[in-house]
Write a protein that binds this DNA or RNA. Sequence first.
DNA 1: AAAATTCATCGTAAATTTGCGATAGATTAA
DNA 2: TTAATCTATCGCAAATTTACGATGAATTTT
Lengths: 108, 108
Amino acid sequence: MAIHKKDAFGEDEQALAELAKALAHPARIAILKEVARRQTCICGEIVEVLPLAQSTVSQHLKELLQAGLITGTVDGVKSCYCINRKTFQRFEQMLNSFFKFTGDQTCC
Amino acid sequence: MAIHKKDAFGEDEQALAELAKALAHPARIAILKEVARRQTCICGEIVEVLPLAQSTVSQHLKELLQAGLITGTVDGVKSCYCINRKTFQRFEQMLNSFFKFTGDQTCC
DNA sequence: AAAATTCATCGTAAATTTGCGATAGATTAA
DNA sequence: TTAATCTATCGCAAATTTACGATGAATTTT
């Protein structure tokens, strides 16, 4: 059991859920904030700022990458991450229409 | 290990992460949409619409309740759920300021 | 009163997430 | 060349999530 039934739902619901999932951990939110805060890209300075081991931060970065919320480039021995505005804009639009949908309720 | 280090992060980050987590499953998004779609409240009609067992739906409803995204009242033998606009508005505000923060990036 | 309905909760199993240390590959510094 | 640095990945352990069936409490219906 417990075979994730994701695929039984609509694509838009899956897409929104995946983006929400990427935000569903304070560490990833903190990472995104830190990446956004420094105008120029970031590498392992994130590790210094977060209360997590390097490997754990790396894992969170990977998830943010896979969700498309950041982009990553290699700069010598360092890795450089940036906010991926495209995805953020798409995310924002999806949420806006979702919120609009839930906006006018008169019950209870 | 793996003792969730949530508490090592800021309250705002934790709060946003928790709301995002509530959206981090297509079933819960589908539930919210269905609750919003019907102007009047909802009960186990949700079960008929979703491809999940009744107990599973009940569990998802509980999570949405705990996140504050819906309210629930008992109506005889039935349970009635509604969108909790307050939380949605708060959520929207948190996301807006978060998105604003990540908006103006020039790098990579 | 008895049977049926509605739904929350419990118990359980499988999958996923979170987190860390250790390691390895690549690059830079000595 | 050797040593040091940076970071992705592997392997593992613990916690959490997802999902279901079964059960039970409450309320209708018969």
